[in-house]
Design a protein around this nucleic acid. Structure first.
Lengths: 152, 152
DNA sequence: AAATAGTCTATAGATTTAATAGACTAAAAC
DNA sequence: GTTTTAGTCTATTAAATCTATAGACTATTT
């Protein structure tokens, strides 16, 4: 299960992707619009910035914006930054490999072989889905199901 | 990342699958052979038993064994019991669905659409891999790489 | 200089994970 | 039927991680 941190991060990235090209957004606005605790979001955005996928400006007219085009940022990148490796076990991780201490022969460990498949499947999806593609799929679904009727 | 609990559980299940048909195994033996804290393993095996995939006998000659044939127990079942739902977010879980509170239209949420793909990919692998298949793959790999040469 | 808005450090509360201790119960053996 | 064996149940604890908040600090614009 993804942590709240990662979910908040993905929400914020989606928002920033949708607004891409219209100048920076304030943390406070993002926090309010997405219902995320402001201070928590601050830390999340900073982490994404330090990892290179966001940029920021201080002072009036400042705020956060994507560091690259929405086509060039993948969900996989964001998840790895906020959640850690995609792999279910460290011995199949590409980005944070760690040998299994108790496993006498890694190459023939059944658990590892299965979890390697899982890792690859997750990576295939998340590393090939950009923020832009996520927006496109969302739009497509909206067209398919028709606009929401707000009846509250 | 899988918890130690789940990893220990999968190790124990693998061991029990390999020994299937030769009578019950003692917790203590399993714990020692796999390097798992005995009391921790106790709780794990009990949980797997209560969920129906292990059986046990008390007293002399007792111990734990698989509740069904190794072909009939999937890795997905074990992971769900010990780790919880496979889905990265509750709103795409088949076994523990929970609506997303903040999401105004679930059907067109981009994050959800992507995470649904991830869940399906994970489930496709884990629900179609039995303990027996895991053993088979392990054996296959052992044949491919040749036997280990122990040089310690 | 004043106002704006991100940055950094520290901390605290809650939850989860990992592990341990010890009393209890069922089954077999004698 | 008592002793031994081996799983079951309850409680507790230490450590780690997650979530959130406070406040001082720095950079930028007006």
């Amino acid at each position: 299960m993804l942590s709240k941190k990662t979910k908040y991060g993905l929400q914020a990235l989606t928002f920033l992707a949708r607004e891409y090209g219209r100048g920076p957004l304030l943390i406070s606005d993002l926090a309010e619009r997405e219902g995320i605790p402001k201070k928590f979001l601050e830390a999340i955005l900073l982490q994404l910035k330090n990892a290179g996928i966001l940029q920021s400006r201080k002072g009036k007219g400042g705020g956060y914006s994507l560091g690259r085009r929405p086509e060039e940022i993948t969900v996989g990148q964001a998840v790895r930054i906020l959640e850690g490796p995609l792999a279910p076990v460290p011995c199949v991780s590409e980005t944070a490999y760690q040998r299994c201490t108790e496993c006498e022969d890694e190459r023939s460990c059944g658990i590892r072989l299965v979890m390697k498949d899982v890792r690859d499947a997750i990576a295939r999806i998340l590393d090939n889905t950009s923020l832009q593609e996520m927006l496109n799929r969302s739009e497509e679904a909206r067209r398919e199901f028709g606009p929401l009727d707000y009846h509250i």
